[in-house]
Write a protein that binds this DNA or RNA. Structure first.
Lengths: 255, 255
DNA sequence: CGTTCTATTGACATCATTCAACGCCGGTGG
DNA sequence: CCACCGGCGTTGAATGATGTCAATAGAACG
């Protein structure tokens, strides 16, 4: 399985992601990255329990990460696209807790922990970038949590499609027509629902003229209506019931 | 509201948390912390949208953090106990995304961002500690996700009680008898279920002789049985169905 | 000592899962 | 080239776990 095209460089200064990539945020001290090889669908980059020895940046393709409970249940925690940072779950225990698995042919840049740490010590921008990425990952997870525990399945799916669309737009691709790199099973797992429900909802949305589904290809016909399902659909007038948890909002910041 | 006892020091070298606290992980360069004041129940430390200017360490008491969706739904993302790091959600955008709210009389140590960054630049241990904490927070969130999307309400509640018990044990308190500092509403929100369900489950567990509930006080009578409900209860023989997501487990780590 | 917050309990409604059958597509081997 | 097979996706019917609504009561708070 090492027969793949293997491409090892010391610096990725002409990577397409050059501006957003943690290796390049500090122009004065580019982090050397190694081991840029090609992975294929269903290959894994690392598995839960493996020694944490590097972070990775996804260069091309797409991937998913998942955790496993003691009972054997798996939960997909995220999908990744080019530019995303992989492996930050490893800092906690020194072992990866995620299993990272590619959804299609993909490539990554590897940043060894030693290199990373010296970059952190030397560059404010690298520190900023890493902390920001990790904070972002956390918030992302919490948004997912919010959607799973507070939204109907239809809203979750709509939200998911809009998120994907946004991600593609940000990467300069079409937010109107795109391909899902993950299976229905993956989506269902990620959103905490049954694949049958996904199927039914997709066809219903199609019947309503909101989207067009052809296998893995999705076309958004009416983004406004899609976005609208996120609000309480029964109630045309968007009622902002704050539903607030008891918390005095003094928010006496600092001192 | 500034009438509270106000206690400002430069260094917290004799804090009870001295060993685990990020301010003290590097004995050679203790981070100066400021503004140790007393907060009360329902006070908030910061709110979503406020400028991110500091991290905090919870010194005493307990707290919860929550995020709010555009529709006004709130989701509690975590409960905090002494030693926990607060505010790491702020790195992403430079504003807090959480609202942090105390559940009882509490105190914190404040670590300004400037101080933090110089400590990060100078100390490997501080870098390690911060990254570890953030990674841990991420994993924690994902465990919650897993439990919400893959477990029954009974299992979620059992899991929650066991987690709390563990936390108290780790802090040298009793894991058998403890007080919930949060309301049923908070628990329900956190676990993604209705308060009525919490109520019913608690009384059922009590009827089964697994726990004793008296308002906020919980006593674990039979921890083994509680732990056992986490597995598929129908099936006495624990069946480890791996339920694996399609992912070749080559896990060709590094290269 | 009333008002409000918190918690409990019952009856009922419902959304989503589960079970089951089937169709489609791509790959593989004869 | 065709037939078979397995993975993926769709659809229908029945079930059930959990939420919603409603009534009540105790504790906390001012």
């Amino acid at each position: 399985m090492n027969t793949q095209a293997l491409n090892t460089r010391n610096f990725c200064e002409n990577c397409a992601l050059v501006d957003s990539c943690i290796s390049n945020v500090d122009k004065k001290s580019v982090i050397g990255t190694q081991s840029r090889r090609i992975y294929h669908k269903a290959d894994s980059l690392f598995s839960a329990g493996h020694t944490f020895d590097a972070l990775y940046v996804l260069r091309s393709g797409s991937a998913k990460s998942s955790i496993t409970s003691r009972v054997g249940d798996e939960q997909i925690t995220n999908f990744y696209y080019p530019g995303d940072l992989l492996g930050i779950d490893g800092f906690d225990t020194g072992k990866y807790t995620h299993t990272l698995c590619f959804l299609e042919t993909s490539s990554v840049c590897r940043i060894g922990l030693g290199q990373l740490d010296s970059a952190l010590a030397n560059s404010y921008h690298v520190r900023q970038k890493l902390l920001r990425s990790m904070s972002h990952a956390l918030i992302n997870e919490e948004q997912l949590l919010l959607s799973i525990s507070k939204m109907t399945s239809e809203q979750r799916l709509a939200n998911f499609l809009l998120d994907l669309s946004n991600g593609f737009k940000l990467r300069g691709l079409s937010g109107k027509v795109f391909d899902l790199s993950m299976t229905r099973v993956d989506i269902a797992n990620y959103l905490g629902m049954a694949i049958e429900t996904i199927s039914r909802l997709l066809t219903r949305m199609q019947d309503q003229g909101i989207i067009v589904v052809q296998r893995r290809q999705i076309q958004l016909l009416n983004e406004t209506r899609l976005r609208f399902t996120l609000y309480d659909e029964d109630d045309p007038q968007i009622t902002f019931v704050p539903k607030s948890i008891n918390c005095t909002n003094l928010a006496t910041n600092s001192l």
